[in-house]
Amino acid sequence: MAHFAALVGLGSYLPPRRVTNEELATMFDTSAEWIATRTGIRARHWAAPGVATSDLAVEAGHRALKSANLPLEPGAVDAVVLATTTPDHPCPATAPQVAARLGLGTVAAYDIAAVCSGFVYALATASAQITAGQARRVLVIGAETYSTILNPADRTTSVIFGDGAGAVVLRAVPDADRPGVILGVDLGSDGSRQDLITIPAGGSRERSTPGEPDPQDRYFTMQGKKVFAEAVNRMGESATALLDRVGWPAGSVDHLVGHQANIRILKALAQRLGLPEERAVVNVDRVGNTSAASIPLALSDAVAAGTLPSGSRVLLTAFGGGLTWGAAALTWPDLSAA
């Protein structure tokens, strides 16, 4: 029997400390207004010292399972997929620890490293496990603590990124026309431009340079303007290819849920796809760029605000380091976010 993967649960978690532009303006040579006009961001959340990515992932995962009416016990899901750029440790992956702490037993658990595109990559992988018959239910989490990799000397990245986690539950269903079914995905990458978004040190390439690495190379770096253009161009191409495959005219998309990097990217993307700006779901103003967590956080916000009704056509699209990008299409299910 054919299986389709349907989204049946959604949850999110933000660490309590809210950092406003005004606070950042006291730390960096910038102004609250400069940050707001360049990025659309007014506040973001940063985890307290001692709080790691798994801590946020466990909270969001718990809430998504609750939203799907699933218990915290072995057998609730068959796999846990965690998208992150900021794992608790370089080794091992963070997902097994999250699965264990959620009481989910000895399920398959693995991390996905696709930076800001991570959630869409994880969704695609989890969906494929279900359609292949390898899993009936999968917990997919995007969780990040970028505050642990931001360079305090680099105001351009420090004002953009926030911490947070979002999660969804996918479940096998027999029919494709049921709301929530992942109707299609599109993934891509361009490793020739890996230098645009990178943490230069800390990996096996570090040994290629003699001596101790520059401490600055332990931090996240991004070439913002080049990334802006690549993001709009790649997300535009990917979304267009997916819409064509799914058979949705671009104008029929009700909600464009793009990676929340910068409001001006979201607007440019809506324009590229020929959609009115108001169809773009926006919460970057409140949470900043939370990388792999951004799409489920934006979905949770929209559900909580009542602006994402069941039956509406939703297009997810993301872009990140790698370079990587991806898109997914689904009709929104009837669920309440936790």
Partner: peptide, 23 residues
Amino acid sequence: LDSLVIVEVAVALTGRYGVDVTE
């Protein structure tokens, strides 16, 4: 204009005319 506008224009021209235009 603020520093991102030229990037936005490059992206808009790319979309509108179907040719790669960079900042």
